[in-house]
């Protein structure tokens, strides 16, 4: 009974994780500039990957695999924001302009103040 319940739960988690991955990919195609795309890739991507690993953890019935999957989720949640931040910072500082619809940019004013004339 419990085994069946875990399998049903795992299947649902798996499909939802896959859906979030698809949403992240659609966002990366549809959104207008790098920074908004990064929102889709980092948030929906991390949630999608995490849900799939959670599905593996729920359906495996093995302590070692369960712990490894949980550690994998933690690892994914730690590294995704770091890589998004690094990429955003690198591309901003090397002059990748935000899209036209960006209506406020505090970082730009700071960089212009610091630039030697």
């Amino acid at each position: 009974m419990i085994v069946d319940l875990a399998l049903y739960l795992g299947g649902v988690l798996l499909v939802f994780g896959a859906l979030f991955c698809l949403l992240a990919a659609v966002g990366v195609i549809r959104l207008p500039d790098l920074y908004t795309r990064m929102h889709a890739a980092s948030k929906a991507g991390a949630v999608g990957g995490g849900l799939i690993l959670l599905a593996v953890a729920v359906t495996c019935f093995d302590t070692g695999v369960f712990l490894r999957a949980i550690v994998g989720i933690l690892f994914l949640l730690l590294t995704t924001p770091i890589s998004a931040h690094l990429l955003a910072r690198a591309s901003y500082l090397t002059g990748y302009k935000p899209s036209e619809s960006t209506h406020r940019d505090d970082l730009k004013t700071r960089l212009e103040q610091n630039r030697p004339a």
Partner: peptide, 28 residues
């Protein structure tokens, strides 16, 4: 930078793909 971002997402999706295969085959 766009390509690197998409590549990053692609690795996460590929990871999910392998996870789904793990569940399907039962090979952990």
């Amino acid at each position: 930078a766009d390509r690197v971002l998409a590549l990053d997402l692609m690795t996460v999706v590929a990871m999910g793909f392998i996870g789904a295969i793990a569940i399907r085959t039962g090979l952990m």
